[in-house]
Amino acid sequence: MTQHAEGELSPEVVMAEMKKNGVTHVVWLPDSETNFLYLLMEADPDLDLIPVSREGQAFSTAAGLTVGGKKPVILIQNTGMMESGDSLRGWGLSLNIPVVMMVGYRGWTRHGVNTDTAATYTERFLNAFGIQYYLVENGEDAPRISVAFEEASRTRRPVAVLVGDEYHGFNR
């Protein structure tokens, strides 16, 4: 296992949250914030990775998987999430799909000045769609991922986890 600085969000912790919540499929499109998970997911025989080439496809794919009784998670970046508004509305919200989307929060800065419009509009976008979201910046925040899964299941709605961290394990 790779050593991580104390407190940072390790891929192993995120994977453990996925396993704890019974995730069967990961519908994903690579981005820098969530890249750290890729090698771990690929090596896990219990996870089926479904690569998409446009983020909107992730919502319809997840809807189909859910109809068949599986438990997908969506792994995308905030830029692609915003491009996917109609798919989120139609295939996620209108079909009552209880899916967690882990969204790489490109541009997120807790204390600095935001210079990336991708970050500027991320939470506004989620609020416009009435999507509940949880910010995960480090290992201590990881239990919020389970909170998101529980909420998605209980409300039969998509719930977002904003991953405000990046690059750990990027070049493994």
Partner: peptide
């Protein structure tokens, strides 16, 4: 049958993939 109409145009192929993979 899954006559879900047209939840959002462009998504049927991926929806079908998901259903097929899950069953």
């Amino acid at each position: 049958d899954l006559p879900v109409g047209d939840p959002a145009m462009g998504g049927h192929a991926s929806f079908g993939l998901g259903v097929a993979m899950s069953l």
